[in-house]
Nucleic acid binder design. Structure first.
Lengths: 186, 186
DNA sequence: AAATAACTCGAGGGCACCCTCGACTTGGTT
DNA sequence: AACCAAGTCGAGGGTGCCCTCGAGTTATTT
């Protein structure tokens, strides 16, 4: 219904955009717990204005994360279009972590490093459900070990999130992932 | 040399022990960044007294971690005593993570989640050097894939540290590790 | 151009943690 | 028992972050 509250005043709309931009950059670079005061400063706006637009940190999440989570659906779709089921599976996983590698905030969200709102959680789960189809296909093709369950993606996600975050290990994440994926072959 | 500074006064020695006990518990339960003020409170001692005994957080680390890191050497020794090289390898890895699972602080130290002093870092590396011998044995026995290097343990450690920490995944850490180890077979 | 609803600002109060320092207490010594 | 070095205490100052609110500014409407 209601396409959404009233229209913003011109200056307010501008400030909102600047805040979203700053928050998007801050979350990507520093993670979902980036200081809000820093975001306000980067946006060239006072902390009071920030709170006028986004009453809570979660309000930022709701404005920013869905689009980023939607990228996962694209990934899943591409994977399902790929003819080779194993290729589809590894490609999906690889693409997923590539996204997380360049977006610290998305990484936090998927690894549930912060408590997320039910809505955000649900969006993450939706991504997982897509993945299930990819797993199933690789399993019935006899390429993925049959005892690997969708839920087993969670520890993988959680573990890799840390590998991607640590200076010491992030350059080698693909190598590390490779060892793991070799363990998943049928 | 010098067996170590002057002898402490009786009450001071008592307080030092209480502090070490509280810190050990706090680090194990909450990680190496547990609040010092909480540690003082748990020890039944003022924050001033805490700082009188341990001028920095690192002073606590130096008093507490070496003994815990030494447990890794024991593990390595046991592994080298084990006749089957693959069994030795997986047993070592499993034991390592079992220790980390029950000690949040050790987990932090090994994954280098906090900046550690050079001395502590070195102690961690020493553990890795032990591991090298175990890897080599499993490799020459043709059980461990030859391209798995000692340095590849680092991402494993870092990733698992997060898996062990997250409520959602820690109960299943052995299952997750199992997939990974399957990828390491020759 | 006057009126006003919408918006912006930033000082300031809260909290959690860090760490210091001068006043007090106490164990050990003579 | 008198002394004092050793030890203890905790108020308080510093930092970084959170969030609020009343006073001031500005876009928009008439």
């Amino acid at each position: 219904m209601a396409a959404g509250s009233k229209p913003l005043r011109a200056d307010a709309a501008r400030n909102r955009d600047k805040l979203l931009g700053a928050a998007t950059r801050a979350f990507a670079a520093r993670g979902l717990d980036a200081p809000l005061e820093q975001i306000a400063r980067d946006a060239g706006v006072s902390i009071g204005t920030l709170y006028a637009h986004f009453a809570t940190r979660e309000a930022f999440f709701e404005a920013i994360l869905p689009a980023q989570l939607a990228a996962l659906d694209d990934l899943a779709e591409k994977a399902l279009a790929e003819p080779d089921p194993w290729q589809a599976f590894t490609g999906f996983i690889d693409g997923l972590f590539a996204l997380q590698a360049e977006n610290h905030g998305l990484n936090d969200a998927l690894a549930q490093r912060l408590p997320l709102s039910p809505a955000m959680l649900e969006a993450c789960h939706a991504g997982l459900r897509q993945a299930t189809r990819i797993l199933d296909r690789a399993k019935t093709a006899g390429r993925l070990r049959p005892d690997f369950e969708p839920a087993d993606l969670v520890p993988l996600l959680v573990g890799m999130s840390q590998v991607l975050q640590s200076e010491a290990t992030s350059p080698d994440w693909r190598r590390h992932l490779g060892f793991f994926l070799d363990g998943l072959r049928a």
